[in-house]
Design a protein around this nucleic acid. Structure first.
Lengths: 340, 340
DNA sequence: CTGAAAGCGCTTACAG
DNA sequence: CTGAAAGCGCTTACAG
């Protein structure tokens, strides 16, 4: 591996001069610069990133922690993050929390040990509790939360997300406006901040319409296909069957439609289904899924910009408020008035 | 940020001793070790990864280049890669080639400049041509190819994948065995090594059955939903409409089924559709998609193990042969005999 | 078992 | 505009 020393020797200059050529566009005489460039070409030199990062005390890597990259929604958020990262010359290290059962606390440690310059927490990183407090106490680490509200213990951190409570209220409200009165909710994981707000929105809409929520109409679906199919089964076996099901995300909603069809129920004729996210599979589902869209890429971009400001230490502490981005009801074919 | 020097001072030992405590489980007297551990706890010391990597000349990062993480198939491959990476203490840096229009050559440079210790190329990294040659000439860089056959220019690199040609032949053969004679093929990107083999398999099966492939029955679908819908439209508008469509991956197959239904065609009553990959959405599609399954996670695991061997330089050159993993036909509900 | 010292490949004040 | 030199925080022969 050829080092800067060798280039300097070949060019007949000092290593300082070579370094200047690589890093600055001026401050070197044209003639000198040319000699250095020739030497670089000749030797096939490429600066050692390891040494550079070490010297500069900066990895130019940011970590993004999320539940699963396989979720088309999170993937779209990542698209936004990556776009900004590229622009700002950062590489993105992805950690899926379904693998590494890491607490947010441990991610904090990765920053302290200089494995990365910044951290984005996309949705719930369990445990959701106060363990996470340490993150903030650890002297002003650059951390931004995306897609979900911050837990109380993390209120000092900036965040970017939709108003999940309002989104869930809108979804439920749409079903109610269609005439449904018996509505089931397929939750993600209980107690995750993300779905807690969505559940609250569901409850709020039902109670505003003076509609009861029967015991057993709220079922955990774990944000997975398998979980949603199981949850749907429970809902359909209930003594009082709902005429509509609201799923805490689209992947579960698509699985729910499949499970309904497998039980001989027509969607939306016999039962309505609505989701949240508007992933790309929603539009080609059978029937096309009615859902609440999130501006996923936008969330990603904003989150990464926010992190850049935090890393540059240009954010004052009071800049830690939440950025709320708008959601939108997308009416397709999976909801209809209840059968009479 | 507290350094090893400070810990040494607090513990009353040399930095060498602290280093030994951190890195080795023996070679230090118990009593000394305890003093060091106390000092570490007291100061909240965490080794500087930057300095360590630099000193060791090893980043413990591997780069995985792939078309898109949003593809559930590639995500599953990544699951396998990540599992092994964790075990071997590597972090995975993902590069989606749909963002960075980087040639394989440039990825090679990332290795030379020590941004990572190794590289996995998952499926086509354009340009597919000889530019890529440089990768190998660059003195034995640790590179492994996953999911697709290696281009001739890269024959010296190890790879792990299914027999794409045979898989495509099996898919086509299944349609033929059902009685179909007019079969369309929705391709990925022309000239990508991945779909080139799949197209070859399609052609092989047709020609073995002495079935003609009409001009216009092979259409590019770009591996996307949008591309597949457009391709389906072309196929359905053809003067001689196929009675079955073989898609080069599942995501396109699901989109194709949607497009057929939107055109008033029943699947599989009026037209059959088959895919490749067996992504998780295949089983809950309407109708459930018949497809060729790839052992995605297994491919990922094997690819990463292979890379580890290459990085450890334990692989001899002749170990560069391809590992072929088995594929399997999964019969569900999207294929039936042609309507008479 | 432990310490003093060299050195990994850069960047950056500091002189000139 | 250029060079000599210090130093970033570690690890690792080399002595003792």
């Amino acid at each position: 591996m050829v080092s800067i020393k060798e280039v300097a020797k070949v060019a007949g200059v000092s290593v300082a001069t070579v370094s200047r050529c690589i890093n600055y566009s001026d401050g070197v005489r044209d003639q000198t610069r040319r000699r250095v460039e020739d030497a670089i070409a000749l030797t096939g030199y490429s600066p050692n990133t390891l040494a550079r990062s070490f010297r500069r005390g900066k990895t130019n890597i940011v970590i993004v922690a999320l539940p699963s990259m396989g979720d088309p929604f999170f993937h779209e958020v990542m698209t936004g993050i990556q776009a900004v990262a590229r622009e700002m010359h950062y590489s993105v290290l992805i950690r899926e929390t379904r693998f590494d059962a890491m607490a947010a606390d441990e991610f904090g440690k990765m920053l302290v040990s200089r494995e990365a310059d910044g951290l984005i927490l996309l949705a719930s990183v369990p445990p959701f509790g106060n363990d996470v407090l340490a993150l903030g106490n650890k002297r002003e680490l650059p951390v931004v939360i995306g897609c979900e509200p911050v837990a109380p213990a993390l209120e000092h951190l900036p965040s970017v997300h939709i108003d999940n409570l309002a989104a869930a209220r809108d979804a439920t409200g749409y079903l109610i406006s269609l005439g449904h009165t018996r509505i089931g909710f397929i939750d993600g994981v209980h107690d995750s901040p993300l779905t807690r707000d969505r559940l609250s929105g569901f409850r709020a809409a039902m109670s505003e319409a003076r509609l009861p929520i029967a015991e057993g109409w709220v079922v955990e679906g774990y944000m997975t296909i398998k979980g949603a199919i199981e949850a749907t089964r429970k809902l359909l076996e209930h003594v009082v069957t709902p005429t509509a099901i609201f799923c805490a995300n689209d992947e579960m909603a698509i699985a729910t439609m499949h499970a309904c069809a497998a039980s001989g129920l027509g969607v939306p004729k016999d039962i309505s289904v609505i989701g949240i996210d508007n992933i790309r599979f929603a539009a080609i589902a059978t029937p096309p899924l009615t859902t609440i869209a999130q501006p996923a890429e936008e969330i990603g971009r904003r989150t990464m910009y926010r992190l850049c400001r935090a890393m540059a230490k240009k954010d004052s502490l009071d800049a830690a408020e939440a950025e709320i981005v708008p959601h939108e009801l997308i009416v397709r074919g999976s909801c209809a008035p209840p059968a009479t």
